[in-house]
C-alpha cells in the first residue's frame, strides 16, 4: 500500500498518497489549480505552465503537475507573481488562438476558455502571432484543425502512451511545432486506427468529432461489439443517440474505446434498414404481419415438433437475460437440449 503523505496547500492540511502529484492532490482536495496539458491518464508533461505554484525550499515556480507530494511540503498556489506568470502564458496562447469562440464546437466545453474565465481574462493584451495552419478533415469521424491547437501534446501523448499506435506526433520545433503524421500526410493516408482517444482528450477545438451534438442526457451501458466489454456513455437527444464516450470508471476499458465503439454505434441503431415489423412468408414471399399474428404462427408451429426435431440458436450478441429466456424456452417449453450459440467464431 502506498504511504500516506501529509502536507499543506495554501495553509490547508491535505492528505494524499505517496506518488501523487501536487496538482492531483490539490484537485482531489477541492483546490483548483488551472491546468491545460495535464490529463489524469497521461504522464506529466509540464508544457502549458498554467499549474505553476511555489513550494517552500524549491527554486522558482515548479509545475504542480510534475512535482510529487512529500511529507511536510508547503505549497502556495496563488499570489501576484504566480498570477502574472500564468496570465502571461495564457495571453500568449490567446494571441495565437482563434478569436471566434461562438463558431467553435468546443464553446463552453473548452478548457482554455475555462482557464481564461477562472483567471478573469476578458481581453487579449498581446500582439497576435497566429499564422494560418493546416486543417485535416480526411477522417470521416473527426477533424484536426491546427489553428485551435495549443500544443499541449495530450493527443500525441495519448497516441503514444495509451494506444501505442504512434500515428501522430509533434513535428518540427519551436513555434513551427505542430501535431502531425508521418510526412505530414492526412489521417486517412496514415496508420491511424481512428480510435478517437486523442479526440476525447483534446482540451480545445483542435481535435473534434464531426457533427458534434451535445446530448441532453447520457446513459451508462456496455458496448455491443467485441468481448472487451467497454463501459460507455450513450448520449441521447431527441430520442436518438448523438454521442458516445468511454467511462473512465469502466474496469475493462478504463475509459478507452475503439473506432467501432466510439463512432460505429449511433448510425446503425436508428438506421432506416432496421426491421420494424414481423414478416411472415407466404406465397408471395415475406409479407408484414402483426406481432400477434406472427407470434401465434410461431407458437402454433413450434407445438407440432418433437424435442428432437427442433433446434434453437441463441445469440452471443444479445443480453444474458435474452439468452436465458431463450434456453429456458428450449428446455422448459420445447423440451430439447438442442440449444447452442456461435461461441466458436
Amino acid at each position: 500500500m502506498a504511504q500516506t503523505v501529509k502536507f499543506t496547500i495554501d495553509g490547508k492540511q491535505v492528505t494524499s498518497t505517496e506518488g501523487t502529484t501536487v496538482l492531483e492532490a490539490a484537485l482531489s482536495a477541492g483546490i483548483f489549480i488551472p491546468n491545460l496539458c495535464f490529463h489524469p491518464d497521461l504522464e506529466p508533461y509540464g508544457g502549458c505552465r498554467m499549474c505553476i505554484v511555489e513550494i517552500q525550499g524549491m527554486r522558482g515556480m515548479p509545475t504542480s503537475c510534475t512535482i510529487k507530494v512529500a511529507e511536510g511540503m508547503i505549497v502556495k498556489t496563488f499570489g501576484p507573481e504566480i498570477d502574472k506568470t500564468r496570465r502571461d502564458a495564457l495571453q500568449l496562447l490567446l494571441a495565437n488562438h482563434p478569436t471566434d469562440c461562438l463558431a467553435c464546437v468546443k464553446n463552453q466545453r473548452c478548457e482554455l476558455q475555462k482557464v481564461a474565465a477562472y483567471m478573469g481574462v476578458t481581453e487579449r493584451t498581446m500582439q497576435r502571432t497566429a499564422r494560418p495552419q493546416a486543417v485535416d478533415e480526411s477522417n470521416p469521424f473527426f477533424k484536426l484543425d491546427r489553428n485551435y491547437c495549443i500544443l499541449c501534446a495530450r493527443c500525441t501523448r495519448t497516441c503514444n502512451e495509451i494506444t501505442c499506435v504512434n500515428a501522430i506526433d509533434l513535428v518540427s520545433r519551436g513555434d513551427e511545432t505542430r501535431v502531425s503524421l508521418f510526412q505530414d500526410q492526412q489521417f486517412m493516408e496514415s496508420i491511424c486506427r481512428s480510435c478517437g482517444e486523442c479526440v476525447a482528450r483534446c482540451p480545445v477545438g483542435a481535435l473534434v468529432s464531426k457533427n458534434t451534438v451535445i446530448p441532453s442526457s447520457e446513459v451508462l451501458t456496455t458496448c455491443c461489439y467485441c468481448a472487451v466489454g467497454c463501459s460507455m456513455y450513450l448520449g441521447v437527444r431527441d430520442g436518438k443517440i448523438v454521442s458516445v464516450r468511454g467511462n473512465s470508471e469502466g474496469k475493462s476499458n478504463k475509459g478507452k474505446l475503439c473506432v467501432k465503439g466510439r463512432f460505429g454505434i449511433a448510425e446503425f441503431v436508428t438506421h432506416p434498414d432496421r426491421l420494424t415489423s414481423p414478416l411472415v412468408k407466404g406465397e408471395n414471399g415475406q409479407v408484414q404481419a402483426s406481432w400477434d399474428d406472427a407470434l401465434q404462427i410461431v407458437a402454433d408451429r413450434f407445438k407440432t415438433y418433437s424435442p428432437d426435431e427442433i433446434a434453437v440458436v441463441a445469440s452471443a450478441r444479445t443480453t444474458n437475460e435474452d439468452v436465458y429466456a431463450v434456453q429456458k424456452l428450449a428446455r422448459a417449453v420445447l423440451g430439447t437440449n438442442n440449444v447452442d450459440n456461435c461461441a466458436r467464431l
Binding site: N160, A167, D169, V171, R173, S180, L181, F182, Q183, I191
Partner: peptide, 25 residues
C-alpha cells in the same frame, strides 16, 4: 528520404510518425 525514415522506424521499433517527429526536431 521517407523510405529511409520508414525503414529506420521498422528497424528500431518505432512508428514512422515518431521518427519523423524526431528527425524534424
Amino acid at each position: 528520404p521517407p523510405e529511409a525514415m520508414q525503414a529506420a522506424a521498422d528497424h528500431v521499433g518505432m512508428s514512422a510518425s515518431e521518427v519523423y517527429g524526431v528527425a524534424t526536431f
